[in-house]
Structure formats: C-alpha cells, structure tokens
Design a protein around this nucleic acid. Structure first.
Lengths: 118, 118
DNA sequence: CCTTGCGCTTCGATTATCGAAGCATCATAG
DNA sequence: CTATGATGCTTCGATAATCGAAGCGCAAGG
C-alpha cells in the first residue's frame, strides 16, 4: 500500500512539523522526483518516453512518482502525455535560483580535482 | 565504502550528464540533507545536538551526510560545532523561493482535509 | 493471427536508511 | 586513579526504498 503523497499540513517523512516547506522538501527529496518535473518542464511525455528520458529509471518508481505528483496536483495526464500543471510549472521556476547557485558551486569546487573521470 | 559526495562536473546518481544542477539535485535529494542545511542555517550545532534537532535521525546517516556536505564545502566543523559555509548559506537562500511556493501549494491543496494538525 | 506500442504492475534482488550499541576521547568530580 | 558524563563518530543486523526485467491488458496496423 502507498503511504500517499506528502501534502502540506500533514506530517511527513523526516519532519513531524507538517510545515509546507517540509512537505515540499520531502516530496522533492524522493529519488527521480525533481528530474521528472524537470523533464516535463521541457516537454510533455508519455509514461515510456518519460522513462526513456530519465535514463531508464525503474518503471515501478516512475509509477509511484506519477501517483505522488498527480496527487500533489503538479502534473496530469492528457492526450499528449503527462504534463505539468500551473502549480508544477511554478515549482520548477522556484527551483531556478538553485540552478544559478549550482553553477557558482561548480566554480567554487574548481576544475575537477583528484579523480575526475573523463 | 563511500561513493563520495556528488560534485559538479561528475556524473551522479540519477543523471549521467554531470550538469551542476543535477549534481545539486542529487546531493539535496538524499534523505535529511536539506533538513540538516536548514537546521544549521538557524544555528550551529554539534553532532549530537544536530541529531537531536532532526528528530533523532540515524547517527550513521548523519555521519554520511556530514561527510558529503563537508566534501561539497557547504559546512565545516568549528569549535562551536558544525556551521554553514558561505556557499552553504547561499544555497539555503536559493531555496527560499521554494518556501514561498510551498505556501501557495498549501493553499491550492486546500484547507487540510481529514485530520490536519495545523 | 501477429506484431508493436501503450500505461502500468509484479516480484525477487540490490541499495539506502534506520537505530541501538559501542568506541575513543576529553573534562569534571570524587 | 576511578568514575561519570559528554562529545564526535562507527558498526552492524533489521527494515524500507529502489531497481529492473518480465509481463498484463488494451488498442492500432499489417
């Protein structure tokens, strides 16, 4: 059985507080979740195509994540596949500063020291 | 053995691309990571105190996370305990829009149906 | 009928996380 | 010196999350 998607106002994995941001962090903190949102922000996709785009993530997990994200009203299934809701798009936008930060982080960490591959 | 902290420029759990933002998402996507950053942004804390603040998270995981986050230069240990680096503080700030979004999300999801604890 | 693609489920194997116990160290007290 | 209690951190068996290949039911095409 499913524990269900985290929702604001309800205690959540890793936090008893039920504060919205904690619920969000819990939802986003699950594997593949942010990647799915990112991919769908680029273009809608059906189940199998989404799986392909996410480097062949496990279908069982994709199924679970779709359930959670649908329940959280971040995405929905149309004729042309899954796509973000307005709420979902807003979330992706809220994540933009993180992308900016990560670039600065990359610089700070310097050109890959040590055992960089490639 | 440790796989090591994700670092920008190096392929990462859930992404072969090595794009900085994916490395960041991988790092943040691990359990307790964001919570640890959040707690340290409120005030520095030693190992055991940090564990207490995070609702008694597993010490083994805390140890692992500290290793990862230190390696990523987001926190460091001083005499007064662990505390965020500048980079770490910047990350927490980059996460602020997420907090804003989560409040709107909470509204959209409607007044907690069922047994909400407010 | 046969094949292809679809959304999605099942289930055994692998990995991540948990959590109680313990180790080594330091400080204070007796 | 011993004892006690705090620290940072590790160990390891148990549980939960994730993986991934196989398959189901359905619809469309040949």
């Amino acid at each position: 059985m499913e524990a269900g998607a985290p929702r604001p106002g309800v205690p959540v994995r890793g936090s008893e507080s039920g504060r919205p941001v904690m619920a969000a962090l819990d939802l986003l903190g699950r594997r593949w979740t942010m990647r799915i949102l990112w991919e769908l922000s680029q273009a809608p996709a059906g189940f199998r195509e989404l799986q392909r785009r996410c480097e062949r993530m496990s279908s069982s997990v994709l199924s679970t994540r779709i359930e959670e994200l649908s329940g959280a009203r971040l995405l929905a299934l149309h004729d042309d596949g899954y796509h973000l809701t307005q709420l979902g798009q807003d979330l992706v936008e809220a994540l933009n500063p993180l992308a900016d930060w990560s670039r600065r982080w990359a610089e700070e960490m310097g050109p890959v020291t040590g055992e960089g591959r490639e």
